[in-house]
């Protein structure tokens, strides 16, 4: 327990480099699965570790020890963790649980609030065209009782030709068909519980776009065409944003740090497709297995300690 309990937390520190490697080396679909699985497993293992550490602190308190019929002497003599460590773990555990629950609650509410049906009856295939010159397009995930929707503005349709519109629709439908919002939501909740895992959630946000781009490429049979469509739509949206900035309306801007997602997507589409690489997948699996096993080991140790103390 002395080492095993900390291992999942230490492994979380590998999130940033692994996110970079998986995004660059793996085909987008595999990368999305690996990144999401990593985020969920590491968050679960890390949170369990915090709970185990907090528990070692709790059993030292006489009232709680009496409640579980544990011997205070044994619990304190075996001393799996310093009391200060247990207290810190307890505080982190409460913070992690609250952060994850809060994010989940806000996302569910936002999703439910996004009912765009009013005033824009969708066509039979779930496409809603909004009469607006600002170039905009997005997919709105399905909910119980409401199918997924693709929303496109007339401004976006105007800048694209017929093939490019097919690319756009294939891209947005791929998001809905492959439940990309679930991957993103899982990774984001994991990152809320453990901020060290944020790079994994950011990587998932990118790889689901790449996944949808590649689906659109297979649907239309032309990766270069998809690259040009993404670029054209982004430049049109930017012209509009710049126009708005001039006319005094606020525009959200990211701090520039390396190329943004759109140029990276376009570059990836113009390059030859990434083949399936087994090595990063195997390494990820090994890391996750280590995290799970060490958490299980730590839990077993605590169980043994409690049995001893209870004897």
């Amino acid at each position: 327990m002395h080492v095993a309990v900390y291992l999942p937390l230490l492994l979380s520190a590998l999130a940033a480099p692994s996110a970079r490697i998986l995004t660059a080396r793996c085909e987008p679909r595999a990368a999305t699965w690996l990144l999401t699985a990593s985020a969920v497993v590491l968050a679960a293992a890390g949170t369990t570790s915090l709970a185990l550490l907090a528990a070692t602190g709790l059993i030292r308190f006489p009232p709680l020890a009496a409640l579980g019929h544990w011997s205070l002497q044994i619990a304190q003599r075996d001393d799996p963790a310093e009391l200060s460590v247990a207290v810190v773990a307890g505080v982190l555990l409460v913070a992690a649980t609250l952060a994850a629950a809060l994010l989940l609650w806000r996302r569910v509410r936002a999703l439910a609030a996004n009912t765009m049906d009013a005033g824009h009856p969708p066509s039979s295939d779930g496409l809603i065209v909004v009469d607006d010159p600002a170039p905009e397009a997005f997919a709105l995930p399905h909910l119980p009782g409401r199918p997924g929707r693709v929303i496109v503005s007339t401004g976006m349709l105007d800048v694209l030709d017929e093939t490019e519109r097919d690319v756009l629709l294939a891209h947005e439908r791929a998001h809905l068909e492959h439940h990309h919002h679930l991957f993103l939501a899982l990774a984001q909740v994991a990152a809320a519980a453990n901020p060290l895992l944020r790079p994994l959630a950011q990587a998932v946000a990118y790889t689901i776009e790449r996944w949808a781009d590649e689906r659109a490429a297979s649907a239309t049979g032309d990766r270069g065409r998809v690259a040009r469509t993404v670029g054209k739509a982004a430049l049109a949206a930017r012209r509009n944003a710049v126009h708005l900035a001039i006319s005094g309306l606020s525009v959200r801007r990211r701090a520039p740090r390396g190329p943004g997602p759109v140029p990276r997507r376009v570059a990836a589409l113009l390059a030859p497709p990434t083949g399936g690489r087994a090595v990063p997948a195997l390494i990820t699996a090994a890391v996750l297995l280590t995290a799970v096993c060490s958490t299980a080991e730590a839990a077993r140790d605590l169980h043994i300690l409690l049995e001893l103390a209870g004897a």
Partner: peptide, 13 residues
């Protein structure tokens, strides 16, 4: 909760 087709571009982008 929206999956947008294209996100904002910086000047460098």
């Amino acid at each position: 909760v929206l999956m947008r087709f294209v996100d904002g571009l910086s000047d460098a982008d």
